[in-house]
Design a binder for these strands. Structure first.
Lengths: 111, 111
DNA sequence: TTTTGGTACTTTGTCTTGCAAGGTATTGAG
DNA sequence: CTCAATACCTTGCAAGACAAAGTACCAAAA
């Protein structure tokens, strides 16, 4: 079905633009490790895969937006819990504003 | 000013996700040529440059979403007027839905 | 007639980023 | 001691945004 492929592309592209925003939104509420972030985003229809998320988390950590700590898991290997930093919260503020602007812009273009 | 650079990056990334959507929204209202599209988007705070827009229009044309015709200009070289096709309008419908979903998703994540 | 300035379209090269696919490591159950 | 489940990480490819440079057309001034 060509239509479904197309539809997925369209959604995928829009998601990309707000992925980093979503990560910060989630981590602003509570610390989380990569696999749990993927689960949470999936619940919200934001499909992300490991190969996308891990590099993204590392990038945000390198920018000083996130930090992490290791925690034992009840089962399996230890988990890398990410937490948002003060700088991350500042960035999140910027993103909140940027998001509002984009939404407004789209409304404007639609008239 | 590091903050401004960052702010611009944030906005730029979000814009990317909706650029194709904005083009179709504009062309659904009236035909336009590249330079005028850039002007219109600039008015709406959607900064786009030539090197981004031209390949994008060509891509959308190759996908059958747009078609074009040449028109004389009152001054300077002729203009390539783009018009949205039926297929383009279908795609626009998909994008409208995708956009609504994304907005809803962000609201959900914010709680 | 040649130059200049404005308008418009196009291409090239670089850099970033998303993602599929494959890899490594830890733990507990059978 | 293997197997399954859970986690984390890396590599290689492809798409796309953008800066910068290039081409082309037209009209008016020099």
């Amino acid at each position: 079905m060509e239509k479904n492929v197309n539809t997925e592309n369209v959604r995928a592209q829009m998601r990309k633009g707000v992925l980093e925003y979503c990560i910060l939104l989630l981590l602003a509420k509570e610390d989380a490790y990569a696999s749990s972030i993927i689960s949470k985003l999936k619940e919200s229809n934001m499909i992300v895969v490991e190969g996308t998320l891990y590099p993204l988390l590392i990038r945000q950590k390198n920018q000083g937006l996130l930090q992490y700590r290791w925690e034992e898991s009840p089962q399996g290997p230890p988990r890398k819990y990410y937490a948002i930093t003060d700088k991350g919260r500042e960035q999140l503020e910027e993103m909140n504003n940027a998001w509002k602007e984009i939404v407004t812009t789209i409304e404007n273009i639609k008239n």
